[in-house]
């Protein structure tokens, strides 16, 4: 899922301070799952913002809403009426949701309240970790189901660098497993270590964001 986390409240105040009436728009999908922008966070943020603004002597009327999927145009229609009565939206969705709002409602400023950070798995309660960077050319079939592109801090394709700590963690953080350590463990338990001796050729990054923004068409699904 897409993982996001709220921006500091001071940064939000800076953006909305000049407005009179704003709408805080949450999203019930990924950001709700990671407790950054769902209903609970929207209803917590609204009074917090009001209080912080009042302390600064700023009065802003705040309304709230939660959209089922802020990243899909059809779900945005339910707030079309509400938006007419505010002069800015503070979106708690991921970057895609924020842009969907901006595209649909051309005259209303939309500000992000969340930093979209990664494509993650929830490893445990309160812990999310990267599993994918959408490189567009999946190598998991060669790496025993563990992704070195997203999980090795150098995206190495031929085994671990010399920076693996004695604990087996990555050179950049004691909190991160060495992705290649995990790949080798799994290769060993599958009895297939010998496959890792193949020298993998340079990756074609044109399928990833390095190849430019994606616009994918599926003719069979088009009206």
């Amino acid at each position: 899922m897409i993982f996001g986390e709220q921006k500091p409240i001071e940064a939000l105040i800076e953006k909305i301070a000049g407005h009179k009436k704003i709408l805080i728009a949450g999203c019930a999908t990924c950001v709700a799952e990671c407790a950054a922008g769902g209903e609970e966070e929207v209803e917590t943020l609204a009074p917090l913002l009001s209080m912080a603004l009042r302390k600064k002597g700023i009065e802003i009327s705040i309304e709230t809403c939660v959209i089922e999927k802020q990243c899909e145009y059809e779900f945005l229609e339910e707030i079309a009426e509400k938006i007419l009565h505010v002069d800015a939206v503070l979106s708690l969705a991921c970057g895609i949701g924020v842009q969907a709002l901006a595209e649909r409602f051309k005259n209303t400023p939309v500000y992000p309240a969340v930093n979209t950070a990664a494509l993650t798995i929830r490893e445990q309660e309160g812990v999310w970790a990267t599993r994918c960077v959408a490189c567009g050319d999946c190598v998991l079939g060669e790496t025993f189901g563990i992704c070195p592109v997203s999980r090795c801090s150098k995206s190495l394709l031929n085994g671990p660098c010399g920076g693996t700590r004695s604990s087996g963690k990555c050179e950049i953080s004691e909190e991160l497993d060495c992705a290649w350590g995990l790949i080798i463990d799994r290769a060993e338990s599958c009895g297939k270590t010998e496959t890792l001796i193949t020298v993998n050729k340079p990756k074609n990054w044109s399928t990833s964001s390095h190849g430019g923004p994606k616009r994918k068409e599926r003719k069979d699904l088009k009206p």
Binding site: G159, P160, W180, G181, I184, E188, I197
Partner: peptide, 23 residues
């Protein structure tokens, strides 16, 4: 090329050396 023979996973470090030499 470089070799860090005693970094974990030690069992793989010879294979990684072989890859460098094969390359």
């Amino acid at each position: 090329a470089a070799w860090t023979p005693l970094a974990p996973p030690v069992s793989f470090r010879t294979i990684r050396l072989a890859k460098k030499i094969n390359a």
